[in-house]
Amino acid sequence: MNNDPLGPVLITGGGGFLGRALTTRLLDAGETVVTLDLSPATGGDPRATHLGGDIRDGEALLDLARTHAIRAIVHLAALVIPDCRGNPLLGAEVNVIGHLNMLEVARSLGIRRFLYTSSIAARPRPPFDAPVNLYGVWKRACEDAAKVWFLDHGLPSVGLRPNVVYGPGRESGETAAITLAIRAAAQGLPYAMPFTSRMCFQHVDEVTDIMERCLRVIPAEPVVSDLTTDIAGTDDVIAAIRACAPDARITPSDTARPSPLELDNRPLVDLIGDWRRISLAEGVRQTFEHYRKTA
């Protein structure tokens, strides 16, 4: 794998959970990182440059990328499921127009390393063989737009579809329940799981490893891929927590959350090869130890 410097990397949504984790990983690898969020990432890694801005403002994005000589883009900024449901027009502006703006920045400046997060929610499913929420609709549109930018302009891209990413710092969003349950157990507090489901649980360190590897490869055509096909249940999460804290007061839920349908990460494996997988037991233990030390 090519380990030459990527050049300054722009991470949109840099103030979020995954953005912060990837920023630190890239900095540790010797990269230069510029983060962008609506407000500069307060408390973010001081080795990075943290900027405030709106991904709906295409001209400002282009000026920023030119000023900082950006040579790679990781586009993470988006509104999540509840926000898209509550304000569909704003969701479309941020998630779709913002994505198109980032593609245009890459095209205009000849940036060949373009990585973005889509979502399992983009996968069609019953009852209408379509995404079941607006967030998924917008993410599917982003995947297709990236393919058209390749057809029209030759712009390569990699779109990743995470399901549930957990670990220290993942404390907001619908699926943050996994991390919150681990944190509660480490602090000796009770926690009621808000849902039950079978899902793909990936520790943040594994996901940022995948993302860094993707940045170091320029694909011959657009790639869209699930991250993993390993599915476990929330009961497995509770069991892993109790392996760390046998007396953990984690209450399961009777509220079912839809599980992902068939998954396929072969495009990702073909692109970057294999990587070190972090088992659910290991990831829960690492997260538990983090919160126990900071309690």
Rank of each mutant, 00 (worst) to 15 (best):
D45R: 09
A41M: 11
L36C: 02
L62H: 07
G44Y: 09
D54P: 12
A48R: 04
P40N: 01
D54W: 14
L38D: 01
G44H: 05
H50W: 07
L36N: 03
T42D: 07
G58L: 05
T35H: 09
E59I: 15
D45G: 07
R47D: 00
D45K: 02
G44D: 06
R56G: 12
L38T: 06
V33C: 07
A60Q: 15
D37S: 14
T35E: 07
P46S: 10
L61G: 01
A60N: 15
L51Y: 10
D63M: 11
L62M: 11
H50I: 12
L62G: 03
G58S: 09
S39D: 08
L38G: 08
G53D: 10
G53N: 10
L61N: 04
L38C: 01
V34K: 05
G44K: 01
D63R: 15
G43F: 03
S39E: 12
R56K: 14
D37T: 03
P40M: 07
P46E: 02
A48Q: 06
L61D: 00
D54T: 14
L62K: 10
D37R: 05
G58W: 06
V33S: 05
G43T: 02
A41F: 05
R47P: 00
G43C: 05
A60V: 12
P40I: 08
V34F: 04
R56L: 03
T42V: 07
V34D: 03
P40D: 12
T35L: 04
H50G: 07
D63Q: 14
G44W: 02
E59T: 15
V33D: 02
V33M: 08
I55Y: 01
A48Y: 10
D54R: 13
P46W: 09
E59V: 15
E59W: 08
P40T: 04
S39W: 05
G44I: 08
L38V: 06
G44C: 06
H50S: 07
G44E: 01
L51H: 04
A60F: 14
A41Y: 00
A41N: 08
D37N: 03
G58M: 05
E59M: 13
G53K: 09
V33R: 07
L36E: 07
L38K: 06
D45Q: 02
R47G: 13
I55M: 05
L51W: 09
L36Y: 01
G43R: 01
D63C: 15
L51Q: 13
V34Y: 01
T42G: 08
D37W: 05
D54S: 14
D63L: 15
G52F: 15
G58D: 10
A41H: 08
R56T: 13
L51A: 02
D45E: 09
L38E: 02
D37M: 04
R47I: 06
H50N: 10
I55W: 00
G52S: 09
L36M: 12
G52I: 15
